[in-house]
Amino acid sequence: MNPNYLNIRGVGKTFKAKGKTYEALGNVSLHIAEGEFVSLIGPSGCGKTTLLNLIAGLDKYETGSIDLDGEAISGPGLDRGVVFQNHALFPWMTVLDNIMFALDCAWKDKSKQEKREWAIHCLQMVQLGNAIDKKPSEISGGMKQRVGIARAFALNPKVLLLDEPFGALDALTRESLQIELQRIWSENRRTVVMVTHDVDEAILLSDRIVVMSRGPRAELIDIIPIEAPHPRNKSDLPDFPGYREIRSRIIDKLSFQFQ
């Protein structure tokens, strides 16, 4: 496993709007190993999503560099699968067509039949084999987000970028999707960067938790490894060695931001 698979080196980002400038990210450096699950946690508006968008290539960084598997990132690409907070499915397409659209964009030389079979396989992986012909408006929020996850996994990206993937869901649905994500991730291990503001979610899923400071000029203020083996169970969390320490360490860092 390459320990320096995704490298963020001295990255800064300034937004300009209506003559005003806002320096969102100061000088961020982070090295993520292949197959590692990293969570970015921080107060809202701290630039977590900005950093994720820079990795996704949806925004351009001004200073520093980001490279993935030896290649510099200069724009959006199929080697990075993004799961957006609000599921972001096309409402005019069925569940299956949402996946098929991604495959049609990505795999130009494969046959319709091959793509269809793979899309159905991916939907079965997230337990949606029975909903393939439904429109997004006909399924629940949790199911929509499963489709979003299936779409990102379907393209076999090198990195999965999750932007508060469960933030809009109720607590019970969120928990079942966290378990589901963990299962899928264990079965096809790949590098994940997840933005979250849920401390327990970060501890449950991550190999490392990156705590970010409040903007402007947001920086990484702590990096905490979580050693417990996967898969983890939410009810077992309190029994993990060092769980309390880790949790209070993160909360201390976060609450310090509000003083």
Binding site: G57, P76, L78, F84, F90, A102, C105, A106
Partner: peptide, 10 residues
């Protein structure tokens, strides 16, 4: 968001 999805899918 729709356009962002399209961009990430190239």
């Amino acid at each position: 968001t729709y356009l962002k999805i399209a961009r990430t899918l190239e």
